[in-house]
Design a protein around this nucleic acid. Structure first.
Length: 847
RNA sequence: GCGGGCGUGAUGGAAUGGUAGACAUAAGAGACUUAAAAUCUCUGGGCCCUAGGCCGUGUGGGUUCGAGUCCCACCGCCCGCACCA
């Protein structure tokens, strides 16, 4: 019996595609273009099984669209800057650049084994000076356009990675990569003015119809738009310069319920009072409080009465005490608020602790109302509020803003949660920020003709901190303005900058400017973008900002403000975990290849020790539940891995890698191969009924698989291919008909298992390569049968079925239904109460 | 706390408001084989003795001729954000 030998066939076809250059795309106005892109990988040096699934998805789309006649652009590159290279440098005494390029070379080979239809002629790595030099040019243009600026700010400092992190990179109070508790630090940093686009980035989310709702919602929440009132209280007993205290609120309607004013420990007023050692100590304590989930759960509301008071804007007789409070954030609004305990839970907790007045000013029904331990935050009617009494919340807000505005005390204001993007990183392995510090001229942008500012290679990692800082000569340069001795900026850019515009570089990867407008005009935008949901905010929000900034600076055409037309988030590949316990009762994790199934359970191969099987979770080095894709490819071939990772679950969901599942996929591919070989031996003449049935099945399969791929339901497409295989195997049609069906099968399988498809295509003597063959069409007329079987329900429960001609009039269907034995029996001579016929679907007899 | 999602056989999962469990995996039985592998056939939600029937999509209600699907409440799990005034 012949077997399909993936180990021989796969490299053979990869070479054939390569030599025919079938995946290289050039602008061509005669065909519609289609730009499909998967988030480019970090070159860790080792392909992960998750990569296989991710890139297989993109490849299905690319191959399918190519067969549909689209001019498909499917490029690949490397997100090559970042911490791991520096960590490796410290551990192995290897240079980050050398380490990274070695990884890229290894990984590219592993990618080749997957048979992806990639156009490698546009490849680049973000650590190439040819790439990051253009990024430096973009930076200078952003600087010129006011989109980049430098300021001193309190930043998130990761004490392990010894670098600054963006807000988006702090997760649960910890660094997103190192996991270290983040500290606050005052540093002068470079920022991108993403806040210029807060409104636009929010509003444009509505237009992203082909993005997951979840991602759009997450971005909307992150941008966090609030509408409210910003106004000033007049202060009493405050230090000089603080005659007014500006606060922000989204509930101006509750102003008459105010019983205190609160300021952040980082508020200028709080700092001005630090000459009092008690206040200094209190402020220090506030700053120390963590922001992790647990810390927030348990943190008590703490305040310090400054002795200062403010005057109520609508009631000069009323004054409110000013507290420094630990729950007020300097980074939002003005860092100062008025507290209305009745209608804000935090203020209520605070008021109860410090014995402040709790005065309800909104009542659910307009009647007198009081609040105990739970703040009332629902809709209602204003009470106890002078001129606001009887108004709705919305009307009261408008009225208060109007009066504050008229009194020149403040105005309505929209505030966003989104802050500007701090991009300075105190790291070596990143894109140098192209500015110069000159004693005479200050901060001077580097001249564009001096770009790229190239990273030095002779660096050492024997000490913590940024090697660029202690490099003997690299910092030294001439001031671009006055020519005197000056020093380079040693901070490099956040690696998220690198990935914020790579998609725009691919179409013109050789251009001597960051982009080429003609190429961008042809290829942009990305029609289908695929990647993990972990980038829902960081990468995707930054990219949306970058596209706008690049339009403003003339690097992209106007149509590119939303660079990703459609987004798909794929799930992860998981595996169950295996553990034993050490002598102290701590778990010891074992990798799947150390495990054997032995009669009644899983055992450790070496010692026979029984294994505890844990839940299937994301593959990770620490839990050792990792499956090496290269071993799988070595054993079964890339097609099997591609087929299996897409077969069982919807692509957006996590899947569990199981050995039995992978073997089953491999068996199935062997079965298809065998069938292709055997159709040659079929009887030359089959039954004509069988031939017609097979033809209809074929058209049905084309329709279903096409719909599956179009709808990103690869698992369903694969289920339909199984059905088609089963039907073809059982078919009694003749040789020619079976071969025709087999050819269609090959075309339908080709996006998923391209190598096997090519091998069968060649075996059957078909012309050219299946990779370049057009997608098969189906005839809608072939999808309908002449007779259909309709279930009959009695009172909604299925009781019988009848087979009737397709276009039988409704009245005839009713007659036949009433003549059905089960119906006659159930009716027992009575007329039905109701008879529902849904044409082509179902009949329901109501008794 | 706020926001979002999801609960279907032993398992992964199908199912425009219209025959629940497609397709696959595990498992069981059988065929072929000296034997194993490979391959093929059958069984494959639960219950009742069968024809056949009853029950069944987290729980309880509701809308409907008809609900896994829509609505309400509850329970459980997952994800995101989190003292944002």
């Amino acid at each position: 019996m012949t077997r399909y030998n993936a180990r021989v066939s796969e490299p053979k076809w990869q070479k054939a595609w390569d030599e025919a250059q079938v995946f290289q795309a050039k602008p061509d106005d005669s065909r519609p273009k289609y730009y499909v892109l998967e988030m480019f990988p970090y070159p860790s040096g080792k392909l992960h099984i998750g990569h296989v699934r991710n890139y297989a998805m993109g490849d299905i789309i690319a191959r399918y669209k190519r067969a549909q006649g689209f001019n498909v652009f499917h490029p690949m590159g490397w997100d090559a800057f970042g911490m791991p290279a520096e960590n490796a440098a410290m551990a192995n005494n290897a240079l980050p650049g050398v380490w990274t390029h070695k990884n890229i070379a290894e990984m590219k080979e592993q990618f080749a084994a997957l048979g992806l239809s990639l156009d490698w002629s546009h490849e680049f790595a973000t650590c190439d000076p040819e790439y990051y030099g253009h990024q430096q040019a973009l930076f200078l243009d952003f600087l010129d356009a006011g989109l980049a600026y430098r300021k001193s700010a309190s930043v998130n400092w990761d004490p392990v990675d010894m670098t600054v992190l963006a807000n988006e990179q702090v997760v649960d109070g910890k660094g997103w990569r190192s996991g270290a508790v983040v500290e606050r630090k005052e540093l002068t940093q470079w920022f991108f003015k993403i806040s210029d686009y807060s409104d636009e980035l929010l509003d444009a989310l509505d237009g992203l119809k082909n993005w997951p709702d979840k991602v759009r919602l997450m971005q909307a929440n992150w941008i966090g738009k609030s509408q409210g009132l910003q106004f000033s209280f007049e202060t009493k007993n405050a230090p000089k310069g603080f005659e007014a205290l500006e606060v922000y609120t989204t509930r101006p309607d509750t102003l008459f319920g105010a019983s205190f004013a609160g300021i952040s420990a980082d508020h200028p007023l709080a700092k001005a009072l630090e000459s009092d050692p008690k206040i200094a100590a209190f402020n220090a304590e506030c700053r120390r409080t963590g922001t992790s989930a647990e810390a927030l759960e348990t943190a008590e509301k703490l305040g310090y009465d400054t002795g200062i008071t403010v005057v109520h804007p609508f009631d000069p007789a009323k004054t409110l005490p000013v507290y420094i409070a630990n729950f007020i954030l300097m980074g939002y609004g003005t860092g100062a608020v008025f507290g209305c305990p009745a209608h804000d839970q935090r203020d209520l907790d605070f008021a109860r602790k410090y014995g402040l007045e709790v005065r309800a000013v909104v009542s659910p029904d307009g009647a007198d109302f009081s609040v105990q331990n739970e703040a009332f935050t629902d809709d209602g009617t204003l009470i106890n509020s002078d001129f606001l009494n009887g108004l709705s919340i919305d009307a009261a807000k408008i009225e208060v803003i109007k009066r504050i505005d008229a009194a020149n005390m403040g105005a309505g204001k929209t505030v966003f949660r989104l802050r500007d993007w701090g991009i300075s990183r105190q790291r070596y392995w990143g894109c140098p920020i192209p500015v110069v510090h000159c004693d005479a001229c200050g901060i001077v942008p580097e001249n564009k003709e001096n770009l790229p500012i190239i990273l030095p290679e002779d660096v050492s990692f024997d000490k913590p901190g940024n090697p660029l800082d202690r490099h003997p000569t690299w910092r030294n340069c001439a001031c671009p303005k006055c020519g005197t001795d000056a020093r380079r900026e040693t901070d490099t850019m956040d690696t998220f900058v690198d990935s914020s515009w790579y998609y725009a570089r691919f179409p013109s990867s050789d251009a001597d400017t960051p982009t080429n407008l003609a190429d961008a005009d042809y290829w942009m935008n990305v029609d289908q973008y695929i990647g993990g949901v972990e980038h829902a905010i960081l990468h995707l929000l930054y990219s949306r900002f970058f596209a706008r900034a690049m339009i403003k600076t003339g690097h992209l055409p106007d149509k590119c403000s939303e660079p990703f037309n459609a987004l798909f988030n794929q799930g992860m590949v998981c595996h169950e975990t295996y553990s034993t316990l050490d002598d102290k009762g701590r778990p010891v994790w074992h990798s799947p290849d150390e495990i054997v199934v032995d009669g009644d359970g899983y055992k450790l191969r070496e010692t026979g020790e029984a294994i505890t099987i844990g839940p299937s979770i994301k593959m990770s080095k620490s839990k050792r539940n990792v499956v090496d894709p290269l071993e799988q490819i070595e054993q079964y071939g890339a097609d099997t891995a591609r087929w299996f990772t897409l077969s069982d679950s919807p692509p957006e969901r996590d899947i569990e890698w199981t050995t039995s599942g992978a073997e089953a996929a491999w068996k199935h591919l062997q079965r298809v191969w065998r069938m292709a070989v055997e159709t040659d031996d079929s009887a030359a003449e089959g039954s004509s009924d069988a031939a017609l049935t097979l033809e209809k099945t074929t058209h049905r399969a084309i329709a279903d698989v096409t719909a599956g791929i179009e709808g990103f339901a690869f698992n369903k497409a694969i289920a339909k291919l199984y059905e088609f295989t089963n039907a073809l195997q059982k078919s009694k049609a003749g040789k020619a008909e079976k071969q025709a069906a087999m050819r269609v099968m090959t075309q339908l399988m080709h996006p998923i298992t391209p190598h096997l498809a090519e091998e069968i295509w060649a075996l059957m003597g078909a012309k050219g390569m299946v990779t370049t063959a057009p997608w098969p069409d189906f005839d809608p007329a072939m999808l309908v049968d002449d007779s259909i079987t309709m279930p009959i329900q009695i009172n909604g429960k299925r009781r019988s079925e009848i087979t009737i001609p397709k276009d039988l009039p409704k009245s005839e269907v009713e007659k036949l239904a009433l003549a059905d034995n089960a119906v006659i029996k159930a009716l027992a001579g009575n007329a039905p109460k109701k008879l529902i016929v849904v044409p082509g679907r179902i009949i329901n007899v109501v008794i």
